[in-house]
């Protein structure tokens, strides 16, 4: 039962889906857990607009309901990334990744600004397109190897997964986490509410680190 992430320390068995805490996935899990707790505990920051050339500045008012909604989305995003890093089933991993994607969109979409909402819409389109690759990729893995369980795929006794299928899964995760788009992601940081927006970046980093481990053992 040794996988690319090491020998499992602890297995949680839900029928066909076995959640495995290997040293690698456990460290990612703890990282996600710590940041989720931080989001729960932290108080939202307030953004200041400073008018250049004068002493004038103003605080942006953010409604309480918006903050509560975004905190809820950030916590959901943290839970989803915890699930995504420890799950031991390929299709389940894809579902958790899709959950991370929609939570990221939710964190940003609640902001009352036309510009930010436009960005959220575009990210949502990318995330939705990425589910096609994720589900398609995992279905093709099941067809070519006969299983979706990652520990069994890691044993190496099954036929190799075609390279294009691996690319499907990697590009799909990139689209959900918007990993290659950090340049454009700066737009998100213009959205007020720092502790919650951090969750967008952290979750995409975590699912990307996990998909490397997943694809290596396919």
């Amino acid at each position: 039962m040794t996988t690319a992430g090491g020998t499992p320390l602890f297995l949680l068995e839900f029928g066909d889906i076995v959640i495995s805490f290997t040293p690698y996935t456990t460290s990612l899990f703890i990282l996600a857990l710590v940041f989720t707790l931080l989001v729960i505990a932290s108080r939202p920051e307030r953004q200041l607009d400073i008018a250049f050339g004068t002493d004038a500045y103003m605080t942006k008012e953010i409604s309480l309901s918006e903050m509560r909604f975004r905190r809820f989305m950030a916590i959901a995003c943290g839970l989803a990334s915890m699930g995504a890093v420890v799950t031991g089933d390929l299709f389940d991993f894809c579902l958790f990744t899709a959950l991370v994607g929609i939570c990221n969109v939710g964190i940003v979409a609640a902001v009352k600004s036309r510009h930010v909402q436009n960005a959220a819409y575009q990210y949502g389109l990318v995330a939705l397109a990425a589910t096609v690759l994720l589900f398609g990729g995992s279905a093709m893995v099941a067809a070519t190897t006969g299983t979706l369980s990652l520990p069994i795929l890691a044993t190496g006794t099954l036929p190799a997964v075609p390279l294009a299928v691996k690319a499907f899964i990697v590009i799909g995760v990139m689209g959900e986490g918007m990993a290659p788009f950090y340049a454009a992601k700066a737009e998100m940081f213009r959205a007020p509410g720092a502790p919650y927006v951090i969750m967008c970046s952290l979750s995409s980093l975590l699912i990307f680190l996990r998909v490397i481990e997943v694809v290596v053992q396919l």
Binding site: D16, I17, F72, M73, A76, A80, D89, D92, I102
Partner: peptide
């Protein structure tokens, strides 16, 4: 039963999308 966790995650996605 056997892949119950999949369905839990799937309904969670549905829930989050409807919440948004």
């Amino acid at each position: 039963n056997t892949r119950g966790l999949d369905t839990v995650v799937e309904t969670a996605i549905l829930f989050i999308a409807f919440a948004i």
